[in-house]
Design a protein around this nucleic acid. Structure first.
Lengths: 216, 216, 216, 216
DNA sequence: TATGAATGAGTCTTCATTCAT
DNA sequence: TATGAATGAAGACTCATTCAT
């Protein structure tokens, strides 16, 4: 859409940040935050180290940009979805959200960022705070709101919504972590679909109100 | 009689390794593997850098020793326990083991090692291999053996033991990870006992054979 | 126009490797391999430690580059020279080569590398192998080829070429070693030209075939 | 010869320094001065690091003691021998001394000390001075005195005795160095006896006065 | 005498960041 | 905008020497 008259050597001017973000995502996911060298990010994006600093103030800002691009955005969409499904069955909605979370984030490269955060947040407080505010609080809030609604309307057993949110998100988080592990037994032996199916089955049967059977 | 001048060092041969392992556990857990400086480990144990090398060949061997001391040993005991409980109810045994795992490892400082491994194994293949062989394979094997027995004797629904093992261990693992996170919401908001209770309840109701409901 | 503040560094890409190699040669020769600190090499070349690593992967590669620059190249030229002098008197060619060796390598700073190798090869096997292949084998082969020709054409007494090569190269090597010794008697008392003259005279009279006298 | 009444555990009290010197010789020769660790010396002698310091003030004194024990002593005997052979043929005496030197020092482990000195004297000035005074000056003086006598009595061509001493000692020195090299071509391909025979033949024919040929 | 635990200065190597061009 | 040469602080590991026992 840009003017066609621009000389050839200036092409892709606007694409630079995207290429850098893509390269950074790959390397952060593979190596972690501290172990990722900016020079490698630059090289993978086909630019020089100095260029990277033209687009991102420093390593930390680069990382934040990667998180925004790959995770924060998805959460925003999910929030809209939940708001739109106000009348749906909570048991189904809950499982749909968990499954969607796995499909749209967990099963992508972006899930490596969760591993990274888990691992290194303690050494980089600023990053921890950012991730907590932008991802964890919002993501958990979303799940908790569904649980709360399910408890309120009698679909679910009367559980503590915040605690149950943790229990429900834990397996998906672990699956995300495992999918970025280098353990032979992990990498090789877990079938994510089977795992999610087993987990969602457990949830379906495990969360609903006992009384529900009577009610039926 | 007491000299006013503190001796340059104190001779504590037998106590040293334990003190060093304790200091190393603390720092590995707090900072991760790569970010832990051996000089800090030494200082925390009250000795000099060089002294550490009298007891442990290098950083990697120090780490392995920490894992052996804090995790491998517990697994060994658990294996005996399971073998001794051959006739028990699998549903109960399973929950007992998961709970015990949390109590004896998960809720201690040692659980930080799981976080560390999750996070950094990819950058340190030798450590990954060691941990996989000594901890993951053995630990998973233990849980899977119980699940398999429960499926065989009809206590459990006919699930895939290896997949279910992953599903069952995931929440405990995540709780371990969370308990070593620095996120305000994590550190503050999770009550491990409530989490474990919620999780074990989910398991009890979720894993048993459907027929069991009829039996009640 | 000249800024009063000296720039933190100066950009000298093309000159750098040469400056670093020169500094490295000096220090390796003066202090040996193990005792040469890369920081000193850098400082002598007027750069920082890190800069050195932009041009040479590590200490070993730096050393190899120094050897290539200062010795291997000369051997290559000598090989051409010998090939070109196919018809010359072997007695004269032999002495010319030995003398040339002294003049072009032995009497320069580069000869200190021979001392270094002699001294430290045992502790650095990789360096030993490199030097053996690139310098010793080729250099000895060159001298031996002349001796062999001289024996074959009757100029020389029927000696074993490989043994005689050792005998012939030994004094030049020793002179090289001596010229880098710090012994008062060595540094001061040896006149290399007198030494070489005495040695070459010894060779001229000592190597030729006894029958030669008859021939005259 | 010591009292037989001494308790068993105190045996070999006087042998300790000898054992330490033997161990030190081995390691200095194999690894050089700087690279020899005193802990290894102690271990090889079967004692602890601390014990070594009971007998030798520090690394440097240990090294000096090794040199005294293994080289200085031999030179003393050689000086007596030369003094006793006042009337012998200088050509023969010279070759006898050179050969003896090889046999009694050069072909033993002690020759490795020459390599070590050659290599590292520059980094340890005190050691250099010691070796120069105790070994080099005295050894060279011995050879030079024979050369001088041979020139004076017409047996030898009128050479400069000091220069010729260097030329004559150089091959033996190099043979000593080579015999402690790790180069395949060195270790494997040099036959010391053949080398010495070739060298001594060269000397015999090369050093005598030209007139001598006429005389024959 | 003998031990060996303890020390700490010293050296190679890495990498985020800066800045002259 | 883009480059990449240059910087320098930081960390693992070694080893001569000391000294309480």
């Amino acid at each position: 859409m840009q003017s066609d008259t621009k000389p050839r050597w200036e092409r892709r001017k606007d694409a630079r940040p995207q290429e850098l973000l893509a390269a950074a995502l790959d390397l952060f996911v593979d190596r972690g935050y501290a172990a990722t060298r900016l020079e490698d990010v630059a090289r993978r994006a086909g630019v020089s180290k100095g260029t990277l600093y033209l687009y991102f103030e420093n390593k930390e800002e680069l990382f934040k940009a990667v998180v925004r691009e790959n995770i924060v955005e998805v959460i925003g969409k999910a929030e809209s979805d939940v708001a739109a499904a106000a009348g749906a069955s909570c048991n189904e909605l809950l499982r749909a959200m968990l499954n969607k979370w796995w499909c749209e984030v967990g099963s992508t490269r972006a899930s490596g960022l969760a591993k990274l955060i888990m691992a290194e947040a303690g050494n980089f407080p600023e990053i921890a705070a950012f991730y907590n505010d932008e991802v964890i609080e919002r993501g958990n809030g979303l799940i908790a709101s569904i649980v709360r609604r399910g408890v309120d309307n009698g679909e679910f057993a009367p559980v503590d919504a915040d605690v149950m949110t943790r229990v429900l998100t834990a397996p998906v988080l672990m699956l995300m972590l495992w999918s970025h592990s280098f353990f032979p037994c992990d990498t090789g032996s877990i079938d994510p679909e089977a795992f999610m199916a087993a987990f969602l089955g457990l949830v379906e049967r495990g969360i609903r109100a006992p009384a529900a059977a009577v009610t039926d």
